[in-house]
């Protein structure tokens, strides 16, 4: 089976006055239909920028400087704005973190949904309205006819995020990129949204990229995981491989700092130091300063392996004993 989305060697740099910020560097992954990829990393690791690059949303001073993005075999890098507009919201859709900011506060929900349908399809208004209503039902919004006539401020945070998901679903995209869509929501509401997303991907075969900093959400939701650090993928594989037998010292450190993995009241196992500035990355492994296993070999950036469970490290950890 050919993957729906293939990203290889993607690099996005920002050319600022202070220097070149390598926000995304040599990121590669492939995604099959109906598959859920969890893209995990801390702030500044480049996970959101990877998502924006795939949506063609990088503005100057940023630029995609290398790599290829193939959607069902079609190369997207090098497309002009007009062709990107045909893809965006139609074949690749995005859900953003803050549902307060992504809906237009002065337009009714139906206006915003119709706009998304009519921008890509030459269908009568009634047909577009029917599709909007269908999408509202799919994401579990009660009494959709009434809710379509409401304004965003009349919705709660969880409901607004559902509307954002409904808009993303409207044109039955091949890929949905979700950038921390549940971070701003409460635990019980997050549970509801995860439930809806999981169901939708299973039913419609849409591939999903779920960007988050929360490993435990990924554990319950995703099929595959890619862990990012300082702009690069440092470990990738299936959820079980990466979380149960993490091989990169950073992934292992991250897992150990989650409070639930430590005995209660005892100090947490912590990763010393903090994430390096993306401006001053040298040729050495970016994790070197914080890594207990670092040696002279780590002066050069390790390449990522070609296996299904790949790791970017000169001294990967073995299976846990």
């Amino acid at each position: 089976m050919r993957p729906v989305l293939e990203v290889s060697g993607l690099s996005t740099h920002f050319f600022t006055r202070a220097g070149v910020v390598k926000a995304v560097e040599d990121v590669s992954f492939a995604l099959n239909a109906g598959e859920i990829l969890g893209l995990v990393g801390e702030s500044g690791s480049g996970k959101s920028m990877t998502g924006y690059s795939i949506m063609g949303l990088i503005d100057p001073p940023g630029k995609v400087v290398a790599g290829s993005i193939r959607l069902k075999g079609e190369e997207l890098i090098g497309y002009d704005e007009a062709r990107w507009q045909k893809i965006r919201g139609n074949r690749i859709a995005m859900i953003f973190q803050d549902p307060m900011m992504t809906l237009n506060p002065v337009l009714r929900i139906d206006t915003q949904m119709l706009e998304a349908v009519l921008a890509h399809h030459d269908v009568p208004r009634e047909e577009a309205l029917r599709r909007s209503r269908e999408a509202m039902v799919k994401v579990g919004i009660p009494s959709p006819d009434e809710r379509l006539l409401a304004y965003p401020h009349q919705f709660s945070g969880g409901m607004r995020q559902r509307v954002a998901i409904a808009i993303a679903l409207l044109n039955k995209p091949d890929v949905i990129i979700a950038d921390e869509p549940t971070t701003a929501l409460d635990v019980t509401i997050q549970g509801q949204i995860l439930f809806e997303m999981q169901k939708l991907c299973r039913e419609s075969g849409t591939a999903l990229i779920w960007i988050t900093h929360d490993l435990s959400v990924i554990a319950g939701l995703a099929d595959k995981v890619a862990v990012m650090y300082a702009g690069r993928i440092v470990e990738t594989g299936t959820v079980d491989e990466v979380l149960d037998c993490s091989r990169h010292p950073y992934t292992r450190g991250l897992m150990c700092s989650v409070p639930a993995c430590n005995p209660r009241g005892q100090p947490l196992k912590q990763i010393p130091g903090m994430t390096p500035s993306l401006l001053s990355l040298g040729a050495e492994c970016a994790f070197r300063e914080r890594c207990a296993r670092a040696t002279a070999q780590c002066d050069t950036m390790p390449a990522i392996g070609q296996d299904a469970h790949a790791v970017r490290c000169h001294h990967p950890l073995g299976a846990p004993t």
Binding site: V187, A219, G220, D223, V239, A260, C261
Partner: peptide, 9 residues
């Protein structure tokens, strides 16, 4: 509802 590391899919 709390997501946990040991729960998969």
């Amino acid at each position: 509802e709390v997501p946990r590391l040991d729960q998969r899919r």
